[in-house]
Every structure is written in C-alpha cells, then in structure tokens.
Amino acid sequence: MYNGGKIIIGLLIFIGFSTFPFLFTMGKVVPIPELKLDTPEIQKMVDKRCVEPKEYMKTEHMVMLNTWRDAVVRDGARLYKARDGRTYDMSLQNTCMKCHSNKKNFCDQCHNYVAVKPYCWDCHIAPQEGT
C-alpha cells in the first residue's frame, strides 16, 4: 500500500467513528426508565386514569402541553375537554403535576433516557422533591 501509514490512520478513525456507540457502551447493561405512578394523589384516585388514555399520552403529551400553553397564554382559554367528555383545567402545575408530583421519577425518567430537555421549567416552577 502506498502512503500506508496515513491511510491506516484514516481508516482507524473511520472505524472508531462508525463503531462509537459500541465502544462507548462496551456491552454494559443500561437500565430502562421506570415510571413511578404511586404518588399520594394517584393512590387516592378510585378510577386511575390520566387526561387522555395512556397510549395517547405517551406519544402526544408534548403536543398537548404545547396546545394548552398556546390556548391559555394567547386565548385565555383554560378549559380542556377530553375525548371522553370530562373537563380539565389546562395547567401544567395544577393539573399535570398535581398527580405526577414526582418529576424525578416520572418526567425525568424518560426524558433523561432519550436526552430530551423540555423547556417547561424555564418558566414554570419545578416541584420541590426530597430525593
């Protein structure tokens, strides 16, 4: 090979980049996020259900919060009518966080796992937690 040294260095860099996730993980087990739904407020509920069904909340909660924010801040509309007819106060701190008061064991679990940094708490006051 001509200029073998330089080419091999280049190839090693290439292999390093393309296998970076493997080298970074080195086969270690990564714990999957565990959501805790055992806050006092949830335990008090007879019918344990969120604003919308779980599957919907799982993928669409950020869209819902964004829509709520726009509705409240821009239009002053505070009443959310869920698809099953119940109504909720559109409020992150007073509605969502009332039940899910365990931000560290609920919101942060998945967000940290997939490195999402929602800017909710740029304006809102995050709940005080001991742990």
Binding site: P21, F22, F24, T25, G27, K28, V29, V30, I32, P33, K58, T59, E60, C110, Y113, V114, V116
Partner: peptide, 19 residues
C-alpha cells in the same frame, strides 16, 4: 405518526450492547 421513543432507544441500546 409518533412512536414510543423509549422503546426505540431500548432497541438501539440492545443493538450496541449486543443484547
């Protein structure tokens, strides 16, 4: 057409850790 991102990451981490 959103997917379960946590599940996707589980697949990805499973691949890179050979599990």
């Amino acid at each position: 057409d959103k997917v379960d991102v946590v599940g996707v990451k589980q697949i990805a981490m499973g691949l890179v850790s050979f599990r």
